[in-house]
Computed example of a mutant assay.
Amino acid sequence: MPKTILAVDDSASIRQMVSFTLKSAGYDVVEAVDGMDGLEKAKARAINLVLTDQNMPRMDGLTLIRTLRGLPQYKATPILMLTTESSDAMKTQGRAAGATGWLVKPFDPQKLVEVVKKVIG
């Protein structure tokens, strides 16, 4: 059974690229348009990995990570930030919120697959 990845980003083109890249590598991908949508989808089904942007309407990535970490089923689930934010301060906030790792946009599709394989197999 393929592992399921939740891709949360308010950019349709980024979601499509992430989805295409990960589906091509054999993963099941669920797309969400912002943090609120991502939270609802994460509660509705089992997710093996969450990829989230930081800057989104309704709920940003850090708030989504903190909220997911508060749910028993997501305490240990890998969560990667995929964002244009690359400052050390933002990365520190991400780690404090519970992010497992950080990828900067624009991303290299092969690197994304490598990181995902490293994190969830």
Rank of each mutant, 00 (worst) to 15 (best):
53 D>T: 10
105 K>D: 08
50 V>M: 11
34 D>I: 04
70 G>M: 03
80 L>R: 04
93 Q>R: 14
78 P>K: 14
44 A>I: 05
42 A>Q: 05
34 D>R: 07
26 G>A: 00
38 G>P: 07
34 D>S: 06
68 L>R: 00
40 E>P: 01
92 T>Q: 15
71 L>T: 09
94 G>C: 07
66 R>Q: 15
77 T>P: 00
73 Q>L: 09
113 V>P: 06
81 M>T: 13
98 G>K: 13
87 S>I: 00
75 K>V: 15
80 L>Q: 04
110 Q>P: 01
102 W>K: 08
39 L>G: 06
89 A>M: 05
91 K>V: 11
74 Y>A: 02
96 A>G: 13
83 T>G: 12
47 I>R: 11
69 R>K: 12
81 M>E: 05
113 V>L: 05
48 N>L: 00
89 A>N: 01
99 A>S: 11
56 M>W: 03
72 P>W: 10
70 G>W: 13
64 L>I: 03
76 A>M: 07
47 I>C: 06
81 M>N: 00
49 L>D: 10
91 K>H: 12
70 G>R: 01
33 V>N: 11
77 T>A: 12
46 A>P: 12
107 F>M: 11
41 K>R: 14
51 L>G: 06
64 L>S: 06
108 D>S: 13
30 V>S: 06
71 L>G: 00
85 E>M: 07
40 E>G: 04
57 P>L: 11
63 T>D: 08
68 L>D: 11
66 R>A: 14
41 K>L: 08
25 A>R: 11
67 T>W: 03
62 L>D: 07
80 L>N: 01
103 L>S: 08
71 L>K: 00
23 K>M: 09
108 D>A: 06
44 A>S: 14
104 V>I: 15
51 L>I: 11
60 D>P: 09
73 Q>N: 13
38 G>K: 09
61 G>N: 09
34 D>V: 05
37 D>G: 13
63 T>I: 03
72 P>L: 06
49 L>S: 07
29 V>Q: 03
87 S>L: 02
22 L>G: 04
110 Q>D: 14
62 L>P: 01
60 D>H: 04
73 Q>D: 15
74 Y>K: 00
92 T>E: 12
81 M>C: 08
35 G>A: 04
64 L>G: 06
49 L>Q: 10
63 T>W: 02
100 T>W: 11
25 A>S: 09
109 P>Q: 01
30 V>L: 11
33 V>L: 08
52 T>W: 06
53 D>P: 12
101 G>K: 01
94 G>M: 08
81 M>I: 15
80 L>G: 10
106 P>T: 06
70 G>D: 14
80 L>S: 02
107 F>Q: 00
98 G>M: 01
95 R>P: 04
26 G>V: 05
79 I>M: 14
91 K>A: 12
97 A>K: 10
100 T>A: 00
41 K>G: 03
45 R>L: 02
78 P>N: 15
61 G>A: 09
92 T>S: 10
102 W>A: 09
102 W>L: 02
67 T>M: 02
91 K>T: 01
104 V>E: 15
82 L>N: 01
79 I>S: 12
